[in-house]
């Protein structure tokens, strides 16, 4: 029995005029505890939709998603999401943004002082403790994503869901945050699912790469294991044969077998 089980999941959205748009078709995926899974696929294929289904923000049309044997059908702090565009509340300080989740999850079990320490520990984890009193408007995009990660981690989720968290960042900041995520994964050994557009990011971070076919009615085309030891270092990996092979396999999938066809919009 796997930790997270996605079984024959179909998702369609109702369209105007009574029709249905089939976005995801027959998704089957099992994820083990502590695993790092990347989901890659062309824009609009339904990656966010799949992540939102796991997060419980939307409901499956048919099929079932189970976490530790229990069906997932509502959002909850056990599946924290780092959103595509940080989604920090701009009127709260960095500290208060994290605190909101901590209060909700640990309000009954931790004392006020313990909660404070926990918030600061999580901000420390993403190296943002120095900006605890700043408002989101006063920090850079990369810093906001860090805080978004801290907010999610602070809820001590069973699974951390990251929806293309570094998509809007420059390459250098991106590399820093990838290191941060690897570091956190190594320390906390939590289960992570991360959507990405970036082949190198997928190979560098993931234990397994889930490649999705193009929509509509997207499904999982291929799942690739990345048997590289951790900790991983991007420079050492660059010439590693296993890394090169994995990278090539993903590229082939994306650009030869499932080329992005410009949809007639």
């Amino acid at each position: 029995m796997s930790y997270l089980k996605i079984d024959r999941v179909v998702k369609s959205f109702p369209l105007a005029g009574g029709k249905e748009a089939l976005v995801l078709n027959d998704i089957r995926l099992n994820i083990e505890m502590g695993e790092f899974v990347s989901i890659i696929g062309h824009s609009g294929c339904g990656k966010s939709t799949l992540l939102n289904l796991i997060g419980g923000l939307t409901q499956v049309t048919t099929g079932v998603i189970k976490l530790e044997g229990r069906e997932v059908n509502a959002p909850g702090p056990d599946r924290a999401i780092v959103f595509q565009n940080h989604s920090l509340l701009p009127w709260l300080s960095v500290y208060d943004n994290v605190k909101m989740g901590v209060r909700k999850v640990f309000g009954g079990t931790k004392t006020r002082a313990e909660r404070h320490d926990w918030i600061m520990a999580n901000l420390d984890l993403v190296k943002m403790a120095h900006a605890a009193d700043k408002k989101p408007g006063e920090i850079s995009g990369g810093m906001k994503q860090r805080v978004g990660i801290a907010r999610a981690l602070a809820m001590e989720p069973k699974i951390l869901l990251l929806d293309e968290p570094f998509g809007a960042l420059d390459a250098l900041t991106r590399a820093h945050l990838q290191e941060a995520v690897m570091d956190i994964h190594a320390r906390l050994k939590n289960t992570m699912i991360m959507i990405t557009h970036d082949v190198d990011e997928a190979v560098l971070l993931a234990d397994r790469i889930v490649m999705m076919t193009n929509g509509p009615a997207a499904t999982i085309g291929e799942v690739l294991s990345v048997p590289l030891d951790r900790p991983r270092h991007r420079i050492a990996l660059a010439s590693h044969p296993e890394y090169i092979r994995a990278r090539e396999a993903v590229l082939r999938f994306l650009y030869e077998r499932h080329r992005f066809v410009e949809a007639a919009e």
Binding site: G56, P75, P77, A80, I81, L89, W91, G101, M155
Partner: peptide
Amino acid sequence: QDYRNVAAVLRLNQFEFFFKIMVPSAA
């Protein structure tokens, strides 16, 4: 929708949603 998603993940109740998300966001 982002703020609504945040509220959903945190399972804020109606009361919390009103004071913590709605009022500041719609201020």
